[in-house]
Design a binder for these strands. Structure first.
Lengths: 135, 135
DNA sequence: CTGCATCCCCGCCGATACTG
DNA sequence: CAGTATCGGCGGGGATGCAG
């Protein structure tokens, strides 16, 4: 694997920072595309403190629709960020819990959240300045 | 600001990890929505080593369309990640360069890229397992 | 309580053609 | 070289209703 020299003509590739990134099968995009949805990272964040039930998550994230709550959880489960456990009670209860991968992801998510909060004001200021001089 | 106690009825708020996040004006989402576009983070990454001209960026990222290259650069400029400098030569040349904010963003982007590369295989494996046991 | 099915809107993005 | 303008597909995601 990892053909670097003798690359075929049609193969789309970019070289950045000393790395060779294939555009047709880029790991970063493959991961980013899934986790950059409107609710995915927030969901991982909501499970940081421990397992949660479906209805708990709905209360934690009031703005999410029931449809997107289900779908986001399914997508994260499929990619291995969390597990889904059904308890056959009456009525049924379902528990969602971060996997090791999910907790590992928190180690990069947390700095990002911190950075966003830290630099939010600067970004808003930049927007205002841009919109005034252009516009 | 930062009303925490005595919150109004209609105000949507979530409390996670000891932080109070307003959903109607969430800093993280405000930043993430812009930077999570298909090309934004890749563009910042492409400018990590130094300033680039328009045509250089197009060569570095062959898959991007001219339209999205322009638009992504405009959006990043607006949010303060990069500057745009026009040199009135013939034909004209335009240079894009990361700002301090842009370089600061690299400090959180880089770990994320590293994490993605590191865990890509695990995620693909999780997907395969999920798709097999489910339908 | 925890979903799934359906409808539908809107904004991202690609393709293409044209300009200083 | 470095854009702008226009068209159109497609998919994310919201609203609503039904089910086990």
């Amino acid at each position: 694997m990892n053909k670097v020299a003798g690359k075929a003509q049609g193969e789309r590739v970019m070289v950045i920072d000393g790395r060779v990134l294939s555009m047709s099968d880029c790991p970063v995009r493959d991961v980013l595309d899934k986790i950059s949805g409107k609710w995915s990272s927030l969901m991982v964040f909501a499970l940081a403190d421990g397992p949660r039930r479906f209805s708990e998550l709905r209360r934690l994230i009031p703005d999410i629709s029931q449809r997107m709550l289900t779908q986001t959880l399914r997508d994260l489960q499929r990619d291995g960020y969390l597990t889904r456990t059904v308890y056959p009670t009456q009525p049924p209860s379902v528990e969602y819990r971060l996997t090791d991968l999910g907790r590992s992801f928190l180690t990069v998510l947390h700095p990002f959240v911190h950075w966003s909060a830290e630099n939010h004001a600067a970004i808003r200021a930049a927007r205002a300045a841009y919109d005034e001089e252009q516009g």
